[in-house]
């Protein structure tokens, strides 16, 4: 029930929409379900809607988490 991918905001559009991008894929999504969406933010996109804002860049956060979990 949870197919969602991270995409970066490239442009804010009227009526609660935003243009987002992942690699070469660009699409327009609805951002009315998230508190904020600024150009440069990474949003989690599900069924054409942003459902959350990614707090930090993927990689750093994960490395930190895994480090905690494995004691390295």
């Amino acid at each position: 029930m949870c197919l969602a991918i991270p995409m970066r905001v490239t442009e804010l559009l009227p009526d609660g929409k935003a243009r987002v991008r992942q690699d070469d894929l660009e699409t327009v999504v609805d951002v009315s379900l998230v508190e904020r969406a600024d150009v440069g933010d990474f949003l989690i996109i599900h069924a054409g809607y942003a459902i959350e804002v990614l707090e930090t860049e993927d990689a750093e956060e994960r490395i930190r988490l895994f480090g905690e979990m494995t004691g390295r």
Binding site: L3, I5, D23, D24, L25, T27, I45
Partner: peptide, 13 residues
């Protein structure tokens, strides 16, 4: 696989 195809396929599951 072209990155565009990979991303679109990903988006659509």
């Amino acid at each position: 696989i072209r990155p565009l195809v990979a991303a679109a396929a990903n988006l659509l599951g």
